[in-house]
């Protein structure tokens, strides 16, 4: 099997991300669900790098898409939406935390002034 350059680079990058994910899991920074999803994603990327035609044809066949190129485009769009949603969720969480913190500080500062 003749390997293209991307078929070496993409799996290496994926393995780096998998190792990093495992480290984060062991350090308790991410839960097992997120680790499973992340791990599955990066393993899928490795397989996709090794067998791009076979996998894209299977996906095209599964969803009734005519060509495997279209299947790749739809898959990428799906992934972009997924990551966009994750980002949106993160921003909302950060905003809520910032508001809660701002409110707590404001009320505490007021209390200190009243106690003086």
């Amino acid at each position: 099997m003749q390997l293209e350059i991307y078929q070496v680079i993409v799996p290496i990058i994926s393995i780096v991300f998998i190792v990093s994910l495992l480290q984060r899991f062991w350090a308790g920074k991410v839960g097992w669900q997120e680790s499973m999803v992340g791990g599955f994603f990066w393993v899928a990327v490795i397989f996709f790098a090794f067998f791009p035609d076979l996998i894209s044809q299977k996906i095209a066949g599964l969803f009734g898409i005519k060509s495997n190129i279209n299947a790749v485009i739809f898959l990428c769009l799906g992934l972009i939406f997924f990551f966009q949603y994750k980002l949106f969720l993160l921003v909302k969480q950060q905003q809520s935390a910032l508001t809660a913190l701002t409110r707590k500080l404001a009320l505490e500062n007021r209390q200190k002034e009243e106690d003086k």
Binding site: L98, T99, T102, R103, L105, A106, L107
Partner: peptide, 12 residues
């Protein structure tokens, strides 16, 4: 007066 250190919006 109670002061928010950063602007958080009317609802906040």
């Amino acid at each position: 007066v109670i002061s928010h250190l950063v602007n958080r919006g009317a609802g906040a």
